[in-house]
Design a binder for these strands. Sequence first.
DNA 1: TATTAAGAATACAACGTTTTCGTAGGAAAA
DNA 2: TTTTCCTACGAAAACGTTGTATTCTTAATA
Lengths: 347, 347
Amino acid sequence: MKRKLTLKLIAKELDVSISTVSKALRDSAEISEDTRQKIKAFAKLYNYKPNNIALSLKNRKTRTIGIIIPQIVHHFFTTVIRGIEQMAREHNYNVIITLSNNDFDKEVLNMELLANGSTDGFIVSLAKETLHKDDFRHLTEAIDQGMPVVMFDRIVDEIPCDKVLIDDREGAKMGVRHLLKTGCRKIAIITTEDYVTIGKLRTKGYIEALESYGIKVEKELILKLDNIDHCEGECSKKIKNFLKGKDIDGLFTVNELFAVTAAKHLHEFGKSMPNDVSIVSFSDGELSKHFIPSLTTVSQHGELMGRKAAELLINKLERPEDEVEEYTTAYIDTTLIERESTKKIKK
Amino acid sequence: MKRKLTLKLIAKELDVSISTVSKALRDSAEISEDTRQKIKAFAKLYNYKPNNIALSLKNRKTRTIGIIIPQIVHHFFTTVIRGIEQMAREHNYNVIITLSNNDFDKEVLNMELLANGSTDGFIVSLAKETLHKDDFRHLTEAIDQGMPVVMFDRIVDEIPCDKVLIDDREGAKMGVRHLLKTGCRKIAIITTEDYVTIGKLRTKGYIEALESYGIKVEKELILKLDNIDHCEGECSKKIKNFLKGKDIDGLFTVNELFAVTAAKHLHEFGKSMPNDVSIVSFSDGELSKHFIPSLTTVSQHGELMGRKAAELLINKLERPEDEVEEYTTAYIDTTLIERESTKKIKK
DNA sequence: TATTAAGAATACAACGTTTTCGTAGGAAAA
DNA sequence: TTTTCCTACGAAAACGTTGTATTCTTAATA
């Protein structure tokens, strides 16, 4: 197991000083053409690569972005990560990903860990438990220490930092209006409890869409569930009970899982889609695409979101010292993707 | 923006030397009880945390594991990552994830990047292009430099390192035998070209299962496709043509996407599942669970795989210098998950 | 009283870089 | 011959740690 090549070793080998090697490799004019070539040839031959850790220490910069997210198994997050990765790569940054598993303590731990030298800044989507606890000291602390933070998706308004959001209200509105345009008039929604921001906003969009058509919002057509990562047992049962006997012709759900679970139960009740009930779901995933019938969705563009978040962070990281603090909140538009779970719009 | 607290700053503030601070914080007996308490109190008050970068440089250890995978959007990989994360956390290691996007150059780049000080070792699943190119210098180089490498899933035999594999042959065999047990006799397989190891092995398992039932393997019941990340257009068409007019009663596929695409076409052909055709798929994902009918799958336990890979790597990282090199290949068993796409076994 | 031992703190080197400053030696100018 | 100015290189500091070696007190011993 040979040791990694360092400037020191090259210096010793070629009988010059470390500084000379360093300068030669960085093409400094201080070093004669001859020596420079000799050193570069040697370095290339033995495949010298500077040690990033040493560079980080020296520069007090790591060129690394830390991502802190609740769950990687969500397709949405994976697309966001891809977006961040892309943008980071384009600007020569690396990316470290850590998972909070929706656990507050782990989120705090992860941040502290990364804050101690491993990253220049953070891109964060908060754990559910954190939102519940309403405790954001780990975030404010990082910010106080001069670490830029960008929050996305699961954010909290009070924290002074850049934010990237899906335009949830507008998206839900668009989705529900699509149901309305295709002729649905009795539209239910399956959403999350209000403490989950996105659920709240999407519910709002649903209500606004109905109102814009002059349709009265009926409480018993709204089902609020805990936002969990699977929808079996209890959750599935609630949906079943909610749908049973309801004479709806449209259904809007805030995520894919609610949609397919509902579809299953509707199927059991002998209802067909889209003829008896049309479905539109907020979504990020593969499920809707491959489901039979494939689901019309309000698509979230996680990749764009990631790119935007990374862009904001990198801007902050590279702004001159004396620039005034200023925080942006960016909204990522959603797109309606028409598939088989809704009828064609009547012309 | 206040600067991060360092030993030096504490030393200056308390008017002692840096060494004293360092030692006090590490509870060295060299420092008097008094001074120790004073320093620890100060450090705690101002929330001192040692700088990991400096530690890494000093110790020539980062306590970080680098994961290099083709795609994070695959549910399978996300479960593997979770397993690695878990095990790493338990042993006080961090995890850095980078994506190759199935691109050879990016894989090489990523490895070089991480190899230059950022990680102590690697857990790798090779990019498709890398397998195609048959060029593994980046791996052997890392290994030569004393960086332990563990390969999983997409491996290559020649590289001297630990490996973790799904028992693909056995898994496929189990899946196909399940079809046989439920009464299927004319079973097709949709698999990948042989250069993808897992496809090859799963095809082998399929053949062995048939043979164990004394059923002749028919070439026209085997469809080999390029292993791609989506199955639309060309790929979907091939499957359609393959299925058209075939009088099969069972279908085994090496991944979920092939399965649902096939299911769609069978649906179009008016065939019902599982009555006309039963389906078993190798799988890792959510799709099978929520598909209608839900798919019987050979499940892969990515989390276990991740845990095992991390365990092997950490073992290598922490073994004494003089221990003999020895490479393990671990197999992770698969489990058959019965769902609605197959009939009940006749007693 | 002089020597030693202990206890308590500090100095220093090292990890691998980059960069600022310094200087040796030679050529050109005075 | 002396002075000046390049050219080409090297020494040293710094980033934040830690471990070894060293120094400085003070108290105990001969």
